[in-house]
């Protein structure tokens, strides 16, 4: 999938000042390959699912029945009929808004912390043990802490996302900042870069690709965790929706929600990866 995407990006892009012409036949073949492999993936998934549904029996709905439910849900995503009956789009939106807030605050804390750990020996000695001890903790274990400090279950879910999105960004930022090659440092010293110039022209451009890798990992885990956190918090959100559907023993809705969670997660990843692509530069041998 990723190589295919990269090929698509390379079509018609300027490399080294020359635009490579891509013949139409090649584009058509590339689209055919993409569509074909996606269809094959869906076919294999449907086959396994169908066999599983047939073996388990009536409790697990099959692919065709579920797809009907899926399209019903997607066709009217934003209806609102009271607190316990909202469209799937509203639920996803509520979850995304929580992820966005938790992720934004987490990033605002994680990047400066990473710079501190990566650039100063004292910073590393003080903060690295804290990161190492707290990082392996399941984010859901923080839920009660969020509940007690924020006095609100939905905000506690945001708090869990905040904690989750810290670690990958902290660790990758610290690595990026600490891995500035000696030759770049020497250039900055010889040409008498001011601290501000050094930060803007050396530290940030060198660390940015690493920071963006951290952000991509962070938002991925945040999206995984929000579903679980909302099962605990209740109220709104796609996690609550899954739990609610399960309590109604409506597995067609559960599976439809799983598919949507996956698709939204993929889109989030693509967005961050597209942003990261803008900050890439050609490596110098």
């Amino acid at each position: 999938m990723s190589t295919l995407t990269e090929q698509r990006v390379a079509v018609g892009t300027r490399v080294g000042g020359r635009t490579f012409e891509v013949p139409a036949a090649k584009i058509v073949r590339s689209i055919a390959v993409n569509v074909g492999s996606l269809a094959a993936a869906a076919g294999i998934l449907g086959l396994i699912w169908g066999i599983a549904a047939a073996t388990v029996g009536d409790d697990l709905p099959g692919p065709i029945a579920t797809m009907k439910t899926f399209f019903t849900l997607v066709s009217d995503p934003f209806y609102d009929r009271g607190p316990n009956d909202k469209g799937i789009g509203i639920q996803l939106g509520a979850s995304l808004w929580r992820v966005f807030r938790g992720f934004a605050v987490g990033t605002a804390v994680a990047i400066p912390l990473g710079v501190l750990i990566g650039s100063s020996e004292i910073g590393r000695r003080v903060f690295d043990p804290i990161v190492q001890v707290l990082r392996p903790v399941s984010p859901l274990a923080w839920f009660p802490i969020g509940l007690v400090t924020l006095q609100s279950a939905p905000d506690a879910a945001v708090f869990v996302v905040f904690i989750t999105s810290l670690w990958p960004t902290v660790i990758n930022t610290a690595f990026g900042v600490s891995s500035i090659p000696q030759s770049h440092r020497n250039v900055a010293r010889v040409f008498e870069f001011s601290p501000g110039t050094y930060l803007r022209r050396v530290v940030i451009p060198h660390s940015l690709p690493h920071i963006l890798v951290g952000l991509r990992l962070s938002i991925g885990i945040a999206w995984v965790v929000i579903v679980a956190a909302e099962m605990l918090s209740g109220g709104t959100g796609i996690g609550f929706y899954v739990w609610d559907a399960w309590n109604a023993l409506d597995l067609q809705r559960v599976i439809s929600a799983i598919l949507l969670i996956g698709i939204v997660g993929l889109l989030l990843d693509r967005v961050v990866s597209m942003i990261a692509h803008r900050f890439e530069y050609p490596e110098v041998p």
Partner: peptide, 20 residues
């Protein structure tokens, strides 16, 4: 005592900043 631009260096591996 330290580096200065008045004693300028051409580095062995060019030392250009790859993002600029």
């Amino acid at each position: 005592e330290g580096p200065a631009a008045d004693r300028c260096m051409v580095f062995q591996h060019h030392g250009l900043l790859p993002w600029l």
